[in-house]
Amino acid sequence: MNDDSSADTVLIVIDRPPYGDWHGREALDMALSLAAFDRPVAVLFRGEGVHWLRPGQNASVIDQKTVSRNLSAATLFGVEALYADRSTLARFQIGETEPDVTPIVVDPDFYHRFKKVVQL
């Protein structure tokens, strides 16, 4: 059996772009809640969800809060790691991310390592 240290980590997947609907925010809230109860949890951004990671967002112009601030807090609140899908980062031409949000870039099949995967 290989080292599956991520055996009981819950992986929350965000694959919808920010601001268009509330699914992503609810998924992040779920991750923060799990972390608050000391459950190991990580978040993977893939598909159109990688737009959460784009730098220079300014959602005040559409009367919303910029999501990247929530992300930088996530690891402080106990979320183990933020992951980002290599292929969709390339598809949407996202080179660098917000300064204090440094996701670990992974391959598309990365989520198979986890026993519990949640997508809203």
């Binding site: 730098p55 967002q57 300014n58 112009v61 031409q93």
Partner: peptide, 12 residues
Amino acid sequence: ASDCEARGLSDK
């Protein structure tokens, strides 16, 4: 334009 700015796309 506002939807582009919100998502950090204005310069793209």
